[in-house]
Computed example of a mutant assay.
Amino acid sequence: MSEFRTAQLTRLSLTDFRNYTQLTMPIAANMVAFVGANGAGKTNILEAISFLTAGRGLRRAALADAARSGGSGNWSVAATVLLDGLETKIGTGLVAGVSGRKVRIDGQEVRGSDALLDYMRVLWLVPAMDGLFTGSGSDRRRFLDRLTLAIDPAHGRRVADFENALRQRNRLLDQGGADAYLSALEQQVADVGTAVSIARQETVGLLSRTIEDQAAQSLPFPHAALTLEGAFETETSGLSAADREERYRQLLSDGRARDRAAGRTLNGPHLSDLKVRHAAKDMPASQSSTGEQKALLIGLILAHAELTAKVSGMTPVLLLDEVAAHLDPNRRAALFSKLSSLGGQVFMTGTDEALFEALPPASEIIEISAGTSRQIRGPQTP
């Protein structure tokens, strides 16, 4: 994938972040494995990297929760990123008592984390996602929104605006707001909600085609069949964007009494669900074995990485937490080979160095212990 732009972290610094008082490490490779005992702080490093792009990080934790216990309440994550032959210093963090996180690019404070998408797109796979197919629809919606954000930087703002408009409508219904105010608010809900749904459906369509293309690559990971389903999608199927928006507005207007009694809005994209099936077996992913679900998820993330590169023109940085431990040696080797071919930077974690024996020679293995880092294998030149 050399035709795409590739962002590479060459230096990472954490201050008062999780279990780290101060950690600064150079990064010398495109494929990096962090190894160490459970609880050493490997996942915390991945979480720190996940804050170097838009969104709430891979744990979706409250910002204050990322601050080191016993510290001042402030924390920061900074990195040097090499992109297009130029180094850029990016950073983010929290100032105790101040809402929202601060973002700096080359020392200049910028508004919002969306600006970081110009320097890095970050995707991740963490153990908490193992129950994605059997968990709640809200988990899968957030997952799909994360996938969409990587290829459409405006999506995060649309989702936030949609959720805010829904909350305002619910509050107005509860308070017995005037019809004129409700109509104006419902128009806003319909406008931004329809845009959210269309963006999600476009992602599902593009990702489905990428997965089909991936089938020819003979990877040892099953292929997923994806659909976006819900009452809203059924009601608006086949309609143009303008007609879908108008139909949604009418559904909101007609449903006021029902929604007021329920205390929430009972129809809309906020209730849609990403349905995933094991394509070869034509069965819901939720009914597949634990191992098959993990393999499906890995295949899905690999396909999304390819799609992100094609749509954005930038290979994403991948964060894979404890992924190697769940794979047999053949699948591990195939995964590492595929990750290498993607061309982007990859950060992985594991408890045992032996899990990463099949990494390409140009990879790096770093041991994490007691809040410190130590390179135990550096990139080897051919």
Rank of each mutant, 00 (worst) to 15 (best):
F4K: 00
T10W: 05
L12T: 03
D16R: 08
N19E: 09
L23A: 08
P26R: 14
I27E: 01
V32I: 14
G36S: 06
G39C: 07
K42Y: 13
A48G: 13
I49M: 11
S50N: 10
G57V: 03
L58T: 01
R60G: 00
A62E: 14
A67P: 04
R68Q: 15
G73M: 08
T80P: 00
V81Q: 11
L83P: 03
L83S: 08
D84L: 09
L86W: 00
G91H: 10
T92Y: 10
G93A: 09
D106N: 15
G107L: 10
G107V: 08
R111V: 07
S113A: 14
S113N: 02
L117K: 06
M120V: 13
R121D: 01
R121G: 01
W124I: 04
V126N: 12
A128H: 12
D130P: 00
L132Q: 07
F133E: 05
F133S: 01
T134V: 15
G135R: 10
D139L: 12
R140L: 11
R141V: 12
L144Y: 08
D145Y: 02
H155P: 04
E163H: 08
E163W: 03
L166A: 02
R167H: 09
Q175D: 14
A180N: 06
D191M: 12
A195M: 12
V196W: 03
I198A: 09
E202N: 04
T203Q: 03
V204T: 09
I211Q: 02
I211R: 01
S218F: 12
P220C: 06
A224N: 11
T227R: 15
E229C: 01
E233G: 06
S237H: 13
S237V: 08
G238V: 10
R247V: 12
D254F: 04
G255I: 10
R260L: 08
R264D: 07
T265M: 09
N267Y: 05
H270S: 11
H270N: 09
D273V: 14
H278P: 00
A279D: 13
K281D: 11
Q287K: 10
Q287Y: 12
S288K: 08
E292P: 00
Q293A: 04
Q293H: 04
Q293V: 06
A295Y: 07
A295C: 05
L296Y: 06
A303W: 06
L307I: 10
A309C: 06
G313M: 11
L318F: 01
D321M: 10
H326A: 13
P329A: 15
P329M: 14
N330S: 13
R332F: 08
F336R: 07
S340G: 08
S341Y: 01
L342E: 01
M348R: 04
T349S: 13
T349G: 12
E353H: 07
A354W: 01
E357W: 00
A358S: 15
L359P: 07
S363N: 13
I365A: 08
T372P: 00
Q380K: 11
